[in-house]
Each structure stands twice: as C-alpha cells, then as structure tokens.
Design a protein around this nucleic acid. Structure first.
Length: 508
RNA sequence: GUCAGUGUAGCUCAGCCGGUUAGAGCACAGCAUUCAUAACGCUGAGGUCGAGAGUUCAAGUCUCUCCACUGACACCA
C-alpha cells in the first residue's frame, strides 16, 4: 500500500524562490529515504494557480492568467527537474482532474451540512487585500500601512463550519506526533483553545478560480482549492476516478512538509475539511523554518534574494543540499552564510568524506592490484564495523523523525572515525613488511566498506554524491534497497577498484 | 499589548532532574606526516554562558526584573 508525502503547492504569483526550494529539497530527501527503506511512496509537489493576486499580476503584465500560470508553472517544473527532485506527481490546480475533485469534495462537505452562507464583513484595505481586524472605533478608519481610508465591505460568502470540529481538532492536535516540531504545536494548541470559527471558502469578486457548483458568481477561495491539490495530485491523468479511489492511490499522506507560515491551515482547517468529507487525516504535518541571508530577511526590496537556479548553476546540487539540510536544524530558522557554506562543503564533503575514499582506494589499488583487498582473518574485533552498524541504526531513527541535521552529523562522525582509524592502524607503515599483508587488507577493506555504508546513508541528502562514491567502489547497483545492501560485508573482496577521483569539487 | 520561544567561543550549535578547571564541529595558530584532494591526525589559542538581582554550601542550569531578537494572537501563499 502506498503512502504519499507532499511539499506545499507553491503559489505561482512569482518565480520560484529559495524557500520553496528548501521545502522541496527536504521533502525530496525524506522521499528518497522512504523509498530506500522499501516503502511504496508517492511524492507530491505542484502549484497553486488561482486567486485574485495572480489575476492581477497577469493583467499588470498584459497577459491572461492562464498564460501567466503556464509560464511560472513551467519554471517550477524545470527547476525541480534541474535539481533532480524525485517527485512522482506535479499537480496544477488549474487541471481538469483538480476541478473535479474540488467539486466532488465540496458536494460531500455540503451534503454533510458543513457549508453555510454567511457574510464576510469588515474594514477592507484594497492595498493590503485583506480585512483589518482591529481598527479602533473610528468612523473612517485608516490602514496603518497604506495610510488610506478603509472600505466597509459586506460580502456574501460560503463558509465552512469549522466550529463544529472543535473537539475533534483538539483531540487530533493533542497527539504528540501530528504537529512537528513540538515548539510549533503549542502555538496551534493555544490558537485552537481560543475557539474555532467558521471560515469563508468562496469569493464573489474573483473570476480566476473554480466555480462553486450551484452558487453563481462564487469561486472557491484558496483553502477549498489549493489544499485539495494534495488529493487531486494522486489521481492519474485522464482517468475518471474520485475521492473514493484515493485510499488506493496514496491517501492519507504520511506527512505534509510545509513552511511554518501555513501550519495552521494544514493542522486545523485541512483536517477538519477532511473529516467533513469522510476522508482520512494525514499522519503528520511538519512546519519547517525560514531562511535568511547573512542575517537579513530575503526580499525584493532589499534586493538580496538568492535565486535557486543560479545557486544550482554556481555550486551544484550536492553542495547546496548538503549545506541546507546538514547545517540547519530542520524545523528551525536558518541563515544562509556564503562563507560558512563554502567552508562546510569543503570540510565535510571534500576533505572528510571525499578524501577518506580517495586515500583508501589509492592504497588498496597500489598494494592489491587495483582490487578490493581480500583477507581471511576473523573479524571478531572489528571496531569500525561495530561503529558502522551503530551509525546505521542511529541514522535510520533520525531519518524517521526528519532529523536531517542529526543524520548528517552522525554520518560525518563515522567518516571522521574512519579517518582516525586509518591514522591509528597506519597501513602504509605495515605494508612495508610482507608479513602484515593480511592485516593491511583487513584494515583497508573495513574502511572501504565503511565508505560504502556512508554513501548509502548519505544518499537521501546528497544523492548525486552518493552515487559518485558508489561508482568508485563499483557498487552503484547497491542503491535501491537498504534492507538488502545496508549490511556489513556486501563489498566484494577482489572486485575491481576504479581509479578514484574527487567526489566533489572544492569551492573557490 | 497578551502569550510562547530564543540569547553559551569568530560561525553553527550541544549542555538532562543545579555539583569537579563550560563542550563539539567549522574557522584560526603550531606540530607531525605522506596512503590521500596543501587532505588526515595531534596540540593550542579563543567564552565575565544577553544584563542585573535573588535562592543555595554550589547556577549556563532554579526565581524575579530588564534588554535584544523571533513566532502566535483567524482568512496573508
């Protein structure tokens, strides 16, 4: 039975930024891990394409909304392609299948009695495109940001009766594993404890959206559109399948990986909507942090945005993936520092891991006829093997909880230990005496095998680099099944050992 | 404003129920060394643990006040 994991469906108002890339990289790492563990998974990403903002952006550019969406969406497709993201699905909320799912979902929720007509009233700022909650008691309130008069609006909307689900949601979020990381769970809890209110699910002044069946002039508002993309993504193209089929297609999601800004919608609105529609609830919602650059928020006004496509071209996928996933605790905010980025990539990947492979492979080739050394002594006292096996268990536990930083630290520690092991056993000294040949073979084999383990463990984080290592051990075919290949001793003694080369180019 | 969180070496962070001279990795300096990608290893320098007060035989670790930053406080993806 398959399970799905998702990134957010990115809003195509503008071209992809580093934040979206970060979410996607993390989800990709987790997806790769799950596959290696033998899970049948569906990795979903995609785009959210409706709404007034997009309509207006398109108009300002003098093109139609659908032209605009096509353009930006294809940028996302290309970007993920360039980054070798392993997504199985890329859903667009303008697709036909999505519309069908939204309609079916709506009718179910309506049937359940969870939709009502209501009025969205309040002081509205056209500039902010939002209702202002606290405007004081002025008769003509002013937007504090735009310093313009607010408009009083009284608009008929459809509402989803979230308030009915107070108890169910409280129960759901009291489950420790549902919202991660824990620190954010408290925020959600306090929010829910203040009492849930119904929220609007349609707009009457937005053309660029999905029409609400039976309500002329209404289009669905974001939450009853974008979130459902997680469902429609699972529906194969051109097949007449609906909500009842989802259980066989990967629903419920194992985890929604999202940014912390949209946690509430995923942890409260979305589960309630699913309950109403009689569908299962995702197992987990993980809200990760935001990235800053050299201590400052990235933004257009500051002109300090890091373009993911340019980063990729300048430094390559392995370097950026490693830095973002290994140096930033997943769930916390992180700061992109170019100096630190370069130092860590060079130190961790090139020096510690890369050089370990290089020096060991060189010795083995030199003294064992370009082959993996053979030995026949008993490995009853094999400290490196023991450490490798411990690390495997550790890393798997970390991956399970999406502790990606901890994964990389554990892998790095094993690499350092292997380097130290070489320095302590000093095979280049032993080899001077033929009587030690067997021992030298034993030591070198252990380190080479550790390199293979390292390559497998690191694969979800830096897949390209991982394959690169495996190729240099002639074991690239080992990369599909951890339960089979993540065992000590799978490296064949006497197998050919190719001429080693650096697994990653040092930066600068 | 209310609530929550964070503030520990240049950088990124560990420090559990308070208990010997405060730790790691990276960066830096020196030593050593060649199997290796000027890599690996060893040693070292570097901190009044945001500020102040209090509790205690003893506080980075508990309490209070203050400062700085971050987040939540419902329709912003």
């Amino acid at each position: 039975m398959s399970i799905s994991i998702t990134t957010p469906l990115y809003y195509v108002n503008d071209k992809p930024h580093l934040g979206s890339t970060y979410s996607t990289l993390a989800a990709d790492a987790y997806a790769r891990y799950l596959r290696l563990k033998g899970n049948d998974i569906v990795f979903v990403t995609g785009v959210d394409e409706h709404g007034q903002k997009i309509q207006r952006t398109a108009i300002s550019k003098g093109i139609s909304p659908s032209e605009h969406c096509n353009k930006i969406s294809s940028q996302y497709v290309d970007l993920w392609d360039n980054w070798n993201i392993s997504n199985d699905k890329f859903v667009r909320t303008t697709s036909k299948k999505h519309r069908r799912i939204v309609e079916e979902f709506f009718l179910r929720v309506k049937e359940k009695g969870d939709v009502r007509l209501g009025n969205q009233q309040g002081w509205y700022c056209v500039g902010c495109e939002e209702y202002k909650e606290e405007v004081g008691s002025d008769k003509e309130p002013i937007c504090p940001i735009h310093l313009k008069k607010l408009e009083w609006r009284d608009e008929e909307n459809l509402f989803f009766c979230l308030s009915k689900y107070q108890k169910e949601i409280e129960k759901l979020i009291s489950n420790d594993s549902f919202i991660q990381p824990i620190s954010r769970r408290n925020e959600i809890k306090s929010f829910v404890s203040n009492g849930l209110r119904d929220f609007s699910i349609s707009r009457i002044d937005v053309d660029w959206g999905i029409d609400v069946p039976g309500y002329n002039g209404h289009t669905f508002y974001v939450w009853f559109d974008a979130l459902l993309g997680y469902l429609s993504a699972l529906i194969p193209e051109n097949q007449d399948l609906g909500l009842d089929d989802l259980i066989n297609l990967g629903w419920p999601a194992d985890v929604h990986i999202i940014g912390k800004d949209i946690l509430r919608f995923h942890a409260i609105y979305w589960p309630a909507m699913l309950m109403s529609a009689g569908l299962e609830i995702p197992k987990k919602v993980f809200g990760h942090g935001f990235l800053t650059r050299e201590g400052q928020k990235m933004g257009k006004t500051l002109g300090n945005i890091l373009d993911p496509q340019l980063l990729l071209e300048d430094y390559g996928e392995d370097a950026i993936r490693w830095y973002l996933l290994s140096d930033i605790k997943f769930g916390h905010d992180g700061d992109f520092q170019i100096k630190r980025f370069k130092e860590l990539v060079n130190s961790n990947l090139a020096n510690t891991i890369g050089n370990l492979l290089n020096r060991t492979s060189s010795m083995a080739r030199k003294w064992f006829d370009n082959k993996v050394p053979k030995y026949s002594i008993k490995d009853t006292n094999n400290s490196l093997k023991e450490l490798s096996l411990i690390t495997i268990d550790e890393v798997i536990l970390f991956y399970d909880d999406l502790y990606l930083r901890e994964c990389s630290q554990a892998i790095l520690k094993l690499s350092s230990s292997a380097n130290l092991y070489l320095n302590e056993t000093a095979p280049w000294q032993l080899v001077k005496d033929d009587a030690n040949k067997e021992l030298v073979a034993f030591y070198l084999y252990n380190v080479l095998e550790t390199c293979r383990i390292i390559a497998l463990l690191i694969n979800p984080l830096v897949p390209n680099l991982s394959i690169n290592i495996l190729k240099q051990l002639h074991t690239e075919h080992h990369i599909n099944d951890w339960s089979e290949n993540l065992k000590w001793g799978k490296l064949l003694m006497g197998a050919d050992l190719p001429n080693p080369h650096p697994i990653i180019q040092k930066i600068e």
